[in-house]
Simulated scan of single mutants.
Amino acid sequence: MRILIRGAGDLATGIAYRLHKSGFEVIMTETEIPLTVRRTVAFSRAVYEEKAQVEDAIAELINTPGGIDEVLKRGNMPVIVDPKLKYLKEYQADVIVDAILAKKNLGTTIHDAEFVIGVGPGFTAGEDCHVVVETQRGHMLGRVIHEGSAIPNTGIPGVIGGYSIERIIRAVADGLYEPVVQIGDRVEKDEIVAYSGGKPVFALMGGIVRGMLQSEVRVQTGMKCGDIDARCEVEYCYTISDKARAIGGGVLEAIMEYFNKHGRKM
């Protein structure tokens, strides 16, 4: 069974990892310039590095759908730049998982594949997808929703290590983004961690840099560009998060439930 995942950011990567380890053929699509903050645990990195490894799984960049089978035969996952799904028919996917996490639907329809899953807010089960998987931290994280939508986006980052808004690094001016520190570095409150549009970006708290945009990406004021973790566990910078694994489990559950009900072999 072949599964297409729209998006290859850190949460989409958590989904891809669980499906890949469960024996499914997984293909991922991305934009030309990925804006993944937690890029050390994201297959989107393959777009500008050609290959990306997360834990013990590898994704490879391909230029056309013609390269899919070769990558799958190597036991890896193909990543292709195709944000608008112009190659949809060539993918021959049984399942589409929209894990772009844009907080809105960017074009996925319930008719794109036999089974379509919307991840997070912006989708309605039974309308633009078959089921929705909850992405908000808390009791419902990873829940499969058969009717209705996920919890609306609050605009407030989830609490990690006792911090919420403070842990996010945001651009302070439009222009090119230039990190001063790297993922895995320890920083202190009020330390300069990057420049955006030539202006300094200061850390709002101390901790370990868990996420940071790559250099020379064009950003806008207020855009999320990094993430600081007060727990100060370096391992967390290089392993899939609990949130991503939970969402991946929800997607896996939805797929197994659907195809078992319809008598399809995995």
Results as ranks from 00 to 15, higher is better:
2 R>N: 03
199 K>M: 14
137 R>F: 11
83 P>I: 09
81 V>E: 04
216 E>I: 15
132 V>E: 04
228 I>H: 08
133 V>R: 10
37 V>H: 04
96 I>N: 00
177 Y>V: 09
22 S>I: 05
119 V>M: 00
67 G>F: 03
233 E>K: 14
230 A>E: 05
220 Q>P: 06
234 V>P: 11
123 F>E: 02
15 I>Y: 02
245 R>Q: 06
13 T>M: 08
150 A>Q: 07
233 E>I: 11
127 E>N: 14
46 A>V: 00
212 M>C: 11
118 G>P: 14
138 G>H: 05
244 A>I: 01
132 V>G: 12
245 R>V: 04
255 I>D: 00
157 P>A: 03
114 E>Y: 08
225 C>P: 07
257 E>D: 14
162 G>E: 08
95 V>W: 00
160 I>A: 02
61 L>T: 05
235 E>A: 10
75 G>I: 06
115 F>M: 10
159 V>W: 09
264 R>L: 13
48 Y>L: 12
50 E>W: 12
12 A>V: 05
54 V>R: 02
103 K>L: 00
146 H>A: 12
82 D>S: 14
233 E>A: 07
116 V>R: 08
120 G>S: 06
112 D>Y: 15
45 R>G: 03
232 C>E: 10
255 I>A: 04
110 I>T: 05
25 E>Q: 15
127 E>D: 14
119 V>A: 00
55 E>R: 10
71 V>N: 02
193 V>C: 04
161 G>E: 06
34 P>M: 07
95 V>N: 01
90 E>S: 12
128 D>E: 11
210 R>N: 09
239 T>Q: 13
229 D>H: 10
40 T>R: 15
193 V>E: 00
138 G>F: 07
243 K>N: 02
195 Y>H: 15
